[in-house]
Design a protein around this nucleic acid. Structure first.
Lengths: 166, 166
DNA sequence: ACCAAAGTGTAGCCACGGCTACATCGTTGG
DNA sequence: CCAACGATGTAGCCGTGGCTACACTTTGGT
């Protein structure tokens, strides 16, 4: 497949080991390229925790609103199949965020409760912030769902500052 | 594994098919649970496009700054191995966002250029917005990387409005 | 013209997050 | 009190996005 084909358009000159640009910047420690790479890696790391946050938040909500959190309720709430919930709950149990036993409802550990609490507060702030900025409620709710997991404490503080000043 | 164990603490009463709460809300069409599910699904969909956006943005940057985009440069820039880049580029080629041939550098299609352009603009706005809010530059850059993919056009407009008013 | 080294590609592994289909458990209404 | 039905669990599939190890191309310098 994909035979090399004639060397065709030869994309201009390009050495494999360009002589290491002699670091024209004042910070030879870390190139902008490296910084970008670190940011991307950080974002990927954040992704890994998003699902955990969504789950504990949903579990906490369900416990508050209906007294307990069941697999099927979670599945409906999160918009996934119950199978996905079961597997994810197993992982969260490994991470000591929840406790679960077969055919029983799901409980949060102390760590899980703490995470849920933090997530809920952050979620709240992000939604209120967006609405304060003039974003319509439904859109704010949607965007907040995606944004909240990527808001650092500094940025969250800035959001709160804006809300207070407003 | 995990033998069912005795029925133990019996988590209070809980019917499997609770009599369908008679829809006390004025919008029987869609429950809040369903709305939440839709939001989560939307966020997951957004996730699928994040990587495409990051790649075309990085490719555009590399072409601008060094004349061409090579696999290894992309790998460094994105903080992943070259293998991951190769596989992802293949997928982006399937989606007609880039063109690539073995051992040659990578080019954006018109669609790819358009996506890169949009992503870059949005990224710019988000960073400037966070900085205007008082978030330190490096943190703003980091958070923007995660946030930008979840900012709808309405929210982006709100950001721009804030920047103008400021 | 060669060849070493860097770049690129391929094989094959892993974890995650989806899913459907099927098996099992548990509750409750008859 | 027990069977039917909903809830839960299990098997096994898919795609994505990481990776390492190894193979093959390109290219600049000798």
């Amino acid at each position: 497949m994909t035979p090399p084909s004639p060397p065709t358009p030869r994309p201009a000159k390009r050495a494999h080991a360009p002589p290491r640009k002699p670091a024209s910047r004042p910070t030879p420690q870390s190139s902008p390229t490296q910084e970008a790479a670190l940011r991307y890696q950080e974002v990927r790391r954040a992704h890994a925790t998003e699902i955990a946050e969504d789950y504990v938040e949903a579990i906490a909500d369900l416990i508050t609103s209906s007294g307990e959190a069941r697999v099927t309720d979670l599945a409906r709430r999160l918009g996934v199949s119950h199978v996905t919930v079961v597997r994810t709950i197993a992982r969260l149990a490994d991470e000591d965020l929840v406790t679960a036993r077969p055919y029983r409802s799901i409980f949060l550990t102390d760590a899980g409760k703490a995470l849920a609490q933090r997530s809920r507060e952050r979620h709240e702030i992000v939604v209120r912030f967006l609405e304060a900025l003039g974003v319509p409620g439904d859109i704010a709710a949607l965007d907040a769902e995606g944004i909240e997991h990527h808001v650092s404490s500094k940025t969250l503080a800035a959001f709160e500052r804006y809300l207070r000043r407003k």
